[in-house]
Simulated assay, not measured.
Amino acid sequence: MIRLVRELYQYRGLLLSLVQRELKARYRGSFLGFLWTFLNPTLHMLVYVLLFTVVMRQNIPNYPFFMFVGLLPWIWFSTSIGGGASAISDRRDLLTKVRFPAQVLPTTVVVTNLCNFVFSLPLMLGLGIAYGQWPTWHVVLFPAVLLVQLIFTLALTYILAAINVTFRDLQHIVGNLITLWFFASPVLYPFSTIQDENIRTLMTALNPMVTLMTSYQAMFYEHRLPEAGPLLVLAAVSVALLYGASSIFESRREEFAESI
């Protein structure tokens, strides 16, 4: 893992260049261009608000804001996992070059989506203010929660990207699993609505996104600090997972150019 981090720092200029290119190219040719960074999560929110407030009639105060708080980090996670799975297998043009750092490719996907997440934060804060939900001092832990999600997302992306080089069906499986994962995470509903304590404990243990979603909601919607225990456990698990992911990635890196 230390080697991976060291090489990412060494090639930080290349990483920055690729991220800038991805951000510019993402909506190139579209009429609204960069505005889609804000429109995509907003349109997602409107669809779910219509479903859960009109059709299913959820009685959650300021529901659009509640959902938006969880939806933005979820979009960052899901698009990173979905795009990161094929980050290596889709870039034969780069990997066949001499000594191209393969680890930069999945990192580019995650960091690009992180930038979109950060760019969308003013929209989330503005929506909260519109509902009278002003940010409080509890958001000081936002960078820590964001860092935990970054480490966890990078680890999972490295593993999927490395395996997908030889098992191309994985990227399609991941797309379907992300949909299931979304509804198993408290994005559209408060975690408190699950009354059975055993189920809550099991979900927290098996689904890392439960801890992340409830942490964001605690800071921005409930105006309290996230629960330290689950967050620290997830941080430790994410670091361990990144260590394992970097080992898997390193062991398969020499095969990438030949396999794709």
Rank of each mutant, 00 (worst) to 15 (best):
G128S: 13
F183I: 15
A257M: 01
S89R: 03
T201V: 11
P41R: 02
L231C: 06
L18W: 00
L105Q: 01
L188P: 14
I2Q: 02
Y158N: 00
R28H: 09
H172S: 10
M219I: 03
P135A: 04
F77E: 09
Y48V: 10
F256T: 01
Y158V: 04
Q103E: 06
I178R: 09
E250C: 09
I151K: 03
V174G: 09
S251Q: 09
L156T: 07
L71V: 08
M209C: 14
N116F: 15
R91M: 04
S120P: 08
V49E: 04
V104F: 00
I163E: 02
V210F: 15
Y9A: 12
I248P: 01
S120V: 10
L202N: 11
V110M: 03
S259P: 06
M56T: 03
I75Y: 03
N113L: 06
I81K: 08
F220G: 12
V210L: 12
F256S: 07
V139P: 08
L50F: 15
N198P: 04
V55W: 05
V233L: 06
L188K: 14
F249I: 02
G29D: 05
L170F: 08
G132E: 12
L206R: 05
R12F: 05
R6W: 11
V104P: 03
T96C: 04
L241D: 00
Q149C: 10
L154Q: 02
G244H: 05
V19Q: 08
E22P: 06
L150R: 01
S259M: 12
T108H: 01
F191G: 14
E254T: 11
I2S: 07
Q195D: 13
R91W: 05
G70I: 11
V47F: 11
L160C: 06
L180V: 14
F249M: 05
G29H: 02
P122M: 12
